[in-house]
C-alpha cells in the first residue's frame, strides 16, 4: 500500500467523525437512559388509543387549536364516542401533569421542541 500513513489516518478520521454520536453519548454516561412517563393512576384510556396518540398527538393538538380558535367549538368527540373538552391545559394536562414528567420526557429524548409552551402555561409546573 502506498501512502499508508495518510490512507489509514484518513479512514480513522472518517470513522471517528461519522461515529461522533456514540462518543458524545458514551462521554455523557446517559447512553442507556429511556424516557420514564408518569402515567395517570385513575384513568385507563387517553382521548384516543395510546399507540395512535404516541405518533399523532401533535396533529390532534393542532386540530384542537384550530377548531377552538377558528370555529369556537370546544367539544371533541373521540372515536369511541366519548366527548372531551378541547383544552391542552384542562384536558391533557389534567392527567399528564406536570409536563416535565410526561411531555418533556420523550420530547427531550428525541429533541422535539413543540411551540405549545410559548403561549400555554404548565399548571403543574412550579
Amino acid at each position: 500500500m502506498y501512502d499508508a500513513g495518510k490512507i489509514i489516518s484518513g479512514i480513522i478520521i472518517f470513522f471517528i467523525l461519522v461515529s461522533f454520536p456514540i462518543w458524545i453519548s458514551a462521554a455523557s454516561g446517559t447512553i442507556g437512559d429511556v424516557p420514564e412517563l408518569n402515567l395517570p393512576a385513575d384513568e385507563e384510556q387517553c382521548v384516543e388509543d395510546a399507540e395512535w396518540m404516541r405518533a399523532n398527538h401533535m396533529d390532534l393538538l393542532i386540530d384542537w387549536r384550530e377548531t377552538v380558535v377558528r370555529e369556537g367549538v370546544r367539544v371533541y368527540t373521540a372515536s369511541d364516542g366519548k366527548e372531551y373538552n378541547m383544552s391542552l391545559t384542562d384536558t391533557c394536562l389534567d392527567c399528564h401533569s406536570p409536563k416535565a414528567e410526561f411531555c418533556d420526557q420523550c420530547h427531550d429524548y428525541v429533541a422535539a421542541v413543540p411551540n405549545c409552551w410559548s403561549c400555554h402555561v404548565d399548571p403543574g409546573g412550579s
Binding site: P21, I22, S25, I31, G32, V34, P35, E51, R54, A55, N56, D59, C106, Y109, V110, A112
Partner: peptide
C-alpha cells in the same frame, strides 16, 4: 404515516449498546 419516534430512538440507542430491543407499534 407518522411513526412513534420515541420507539425509534429506543431502538437506535439499543443498537449502539449492542442490546437492541424492538419496541411495539
Amino acid at each position: 404515516w407518522k411513526v412513534d419516534i420515541e420507539g425509534v430512538k429506543v431502538l437506535a440507542m439499543g443498537m449502539f449498546t449492542f442490546n437492541p430491543v424492538v419496541p411495539e407499534g
